[in-house]
Design a protein around this nucleic acid. Sequence first.
DNA 1: AAAGACCCCAACCGCCTAGTT
DNA 2: CAACTAGGCGGTTGGGGTCTT
Length: 298
Amino acid sequence: MARSPCCSKEGLNRGAWTAIEDKILTDYIKAHGDGKWRSLPKAAGLKRCGKSCRLRWLNYLRPDIKRGNLTPDEQDLIIRLHRLLGNRWSLIAGRLPGRTDNEVKNYWNTKLSKITAQPKESKFDKKSITTRSPCNDHDDLSPTKVFRTKAIRLMSHQVRQVMINNTQQQQQEDDPDQNHIHDSNYNSTVESESTGGSSSSFSFLSKEENSSEYVTGFDIGGISLSEFFDFNDFCDVNNVIEGDISANPEESDTDLLLNEELMLENWNCGDGCDIQANMDSNFGSSASFLESGEDWMI
DNA sequence: AAAGACCCCAACCGCCTAGTT
DNA sequence: CAACTAGGCGGTTGGGGTCTT
């Protein structure tokens, strides 16, 4: 099927936006809100493609855009998130208030990629793969290359089982007379036996919580992953909590994959930590934004 | 001062996915 | 279920500014 263009290109302005166009777009969105991008240009009296309007608004005109250089903290976060997520710019930008995916992407491609492009000697096997770039034959330092390191797979049925167990235990232990803040939490801990106390744990708020705080913590060796993941990333865990536990526990669309290098670097598991053996837990589709399967596995 | 190289980043493009009809 | 729409995403481009020679 031929793809319909987002709009007719005839008679439309292209290239850099003028101040007048910016004002028209801003005034229109302030008055009518954003969305309906395809029809917006005509309604606002702009000779622009709807996509162009959306991009201009999201990347430049939005009032909450933070401009100026990225702080060292932001740079560090980008590096860490990129190591974990690859070129998921929108996800990375989502963790940087006021920063856009385009800005993060540009910043990475022009600055950070040069810093991080040198493949350092590592005890980990590295496998470079490409993302959706059509330029698969680029050299190894191409910005479109993403070095993805060993990743581990957490088996969903085991997490579900733990959660079932904990839910049942919680129900047994819950004191209905008490109404303290954690009384509806489901907390699970998977202890790692061979790492001398290194442990992995996760906890979820009760289902009435409907925010990014829903997943209150998923930490391995004491480092929380919740800072990286949004509530929506754990939608299937939500399903589990809401009663989807009867589903085939072996069934899994996408597995939560954890970057082993990051874990070992930041979570101090050490060489002897057989994470997969000890944390052989599968989160099901709980992190659908991560690549599934083969590309991550080495 | 001039010209070429390099860098930055706004904008564009094509593809994908979710939602709707 | 297929066709279609709308919105979103990531890769790439190109123009303008800056730097170097």
